[in-house]
């Protein structure tokens, strides 16, 4: 379980299904950054029957609102934000076809049910390590909703981005099973 698994992103549906809570991964490839306000706009677009401004089928969404890139760097600090705020939107995003989510913190029973239903996975990055994670980010650019500033949609190229599978498609939940071992 402690072995590091190198994974290209986005990954296939079978890969998403094969991941197990507790597994440590190093992600390399392309992911998309989106948080509160971008999700709200995604919902409005889907409700109107429109396409999303970026094709997110089979993609991984990273809940992030980065700091502005200082000169000479691809990005500033870019750690995960609290995922629970996106719980309201996530079942619909998974129904749309998003394959994985990266954030930090617990998820609602509805999200866990949707992960099981659609065979998707929730990955945890280490909260509060935005400077460290910025070293894994090779490129970052705004691809939708630039008016939202830090809440815009970002295309992010990552290399060996360390995450832990937190909730898998069977509903196993490291945020429950991990603390349970140490609770007294």
């Amino acid at each position: 379980m402690s072995d590091l698994l190198h994974l290209d992103v986005p990954f296939a549906k079978e890969t998403a299904r094969s991941l197990r809570a507790g597994q440590r991964l190093l992600l390399t490839g392309v992911i998309y950054g989106a948080r509160d306000q971008a999700h709200l706009r995604f919902m409005e677009a889907l409700d109107r029957g429109e396409d999303l401004p970026v094709d997110l089928h089979g993609q991984i969404i990273y809940y992030v609102g980065p700091t502005p890139a200082p000169p000479g760097r691809p990005c500033g600090a870019a750690g995960p934000t609290t995922s629970g705020r996106m719980d309201r939107y996530t079942p619909q995003m998974l129904g749309y076809g998003v394959r994985g989510l990266i954030g930090k913190g617990k998820r609602s029973p509805d999200v866990i049910a949707a992960l099981k239903k659609y065979g998707a996975v929730y990955l945890a990055a280490t909260g509060g390590t935005g400077a460290l994670i910025s070293h894994c980010i090779k490129e970052m650019q705004v691809v939708a909703y630039p008016d939202l500033g830090p809440e815009a949609v970002y295309r992010i190229v990552v290399e060996n981005f360390p995450v832990t599978a937190a909730i898998d498609c069977k509903g196993d939940n490291l945020y429950k099973s991990g603390p349970a071992k140490y609770r007294r």
Partner: peptide, 9 residues
Amino acid sequence: GYGPGGLGG
């Protein structure tokens, strides 16, 4: 029992 990162500890 939440521990660092809330993953147990």
